[in-house]
Design a protein around this nucleic acid. Structure first.
Lengths: 149, 149
DNA sequence: ATAAGTGCAAAGAATTTGCATAGCG
DNA sequence: CGCTATGCAAATTCTTTGCACTTAT
């Protein structure tokens, strides 16, 4: 089965009547290939190495399109500029153990409860939710915390 | 004891050899008084209403100073621009409306429930938790979410 | 063919900086 | 007085947009 981001996103765009230009295809490929989260400029540089015709405007226009279609996430980290990553299919959150350093993902029913609670108590309709939890996982003794580097 | 943000921050700045100008004092007061998280422009507008001499540059310079001294937090939410809040000791979370841009804080029982659930179901002991929720607040009509401009 | 997509350059928005002056200590 | 902080305008950085031209379908 074909589940590459590039193919998937390309298909989604076509399905909505968008055209799959050479530029867009290169961009999808660049985004798919990179493990890190890239910013617009890096994406542009990488795409350009592959096809010199790709302009920064097109990078932004494509990112904006993918974002609207919910195919990528725009991350607002502590940097001035944005980073982008392919949207993972399921919503998951990170559980980081400060002792052993393990990062687990979880898909919590508790998060659903939070979502419900916000809707019920505040009339707030959640569209996206970012959660990072730090603590000690069940496998680590509650004794001494591992010295931080 | 004097624990107002304004007094505290002012003191901290003096202690490091900075001067407490009229402009800075007004800015500290504005930041302290507002319950919402303000962006630079709002702070500027509010400060200006109090003292017309306050320039936007000074707002940015002061925010940058306070940030470096760890007296305020700079929030990178889903907006293009930054929001600022006095550094607080207690844990709270952010609710960002993607329509009107309002940022609310909440200290949810639902978050406590999440914490409990993690402990009970996974033996995971939470020490710190960062949560940012984006969605549509109760005051915004569920019509167009289009960030057109 | 024809409307969506593109490149380029120019516009915008948010933030920073250079420089001459104002004003705290 | 001396030096920091300020105001203003110009510069930067990131992103969006207008327009004439291309190109996928």
């Amino acid at each position: 089965m074909e589940t590459s981001f590039r193919a998937q996103a390309g298909e989604a765009l076509r399905a909505e009547g968008h055209r799959l230009t050479k530029q867009r295809d290169v961009l999808l490929d660049v985004i798919e290939r990179s493990d890190r989260h890239l910013d617009a400029d890096s994406i542009h540089r990488l795409a350009r190495a592959r096809d010199a015709r790709v302009s920064l405007s097109t990078v932004y226009r494509t990112l904006s399109l993918l974002k609207r279609r919910n195919l990528i996430d725009e991350l607002h980290l502590s940097e001035e500029h944005h980073h982008y990553e392919p949207k993972s299919t399921s919503q998951h959150f990170h559980l980081v153990c400060s002792d052993c350093g393990t990062v687990e993902e979880f898909i919590g029913g508790a998060v659903e409860a939070l979502r419900d609670s916000l809707r019920r108590n505040r009339g707030f309709e959640v569209t996206s939710l970012q959660l990072d939890v730090v603590g000690r996982c069940g496998r680590c003794p509650s004794g001494a915390t591992r010295p931080q580097r």
